[in-house]
Amino acid sequence: MPEQLNSSHKRGNFALYAIVFLLVGVIMSLVIFFPQFLNMQSGIYGISCREIRQKIQVAVEEHDANNSTSIVAPEKRVDLDTLKEKGFLHEIKLCPEKGEYKFDNRGRVICTFHKTGDKK
């Protein structure tokens, strides 16, 4: 029995400390850092998406002002390629969260992921 006790304590508490230290790190990452990171990422993606949406909205308005036919098709995808081809959009940028840019029933550009359209 003392032999067994001896061998079970042979490596001391260092391994236990290391495991506890790692577990605390992993738990803190999962509980605190990771949600904070996701929150921050979502916020930054939202800001970028809003800005892209606003640029597309401006491009759509300029297009309609300079053309007899409107590009606005309610509930349909925004034709970004046409806007770029005609020079109203400098570059085609997509929503960082893979949302699609569509027109809502009032003709405003909305993102399928972030939903909200810009209020005029």
């Binding site: 930054i44 970028s48 809003r50």
Partner: peptide, 11 residues
């Protein structure tokens, strides 16, 4: 630099 490039910089 405009805000729409923020997500690219973040990534």
């Amino acid at each position: 630099l405009t805000l729409d490039k923020l997500s690219d910089i973040f990534d």
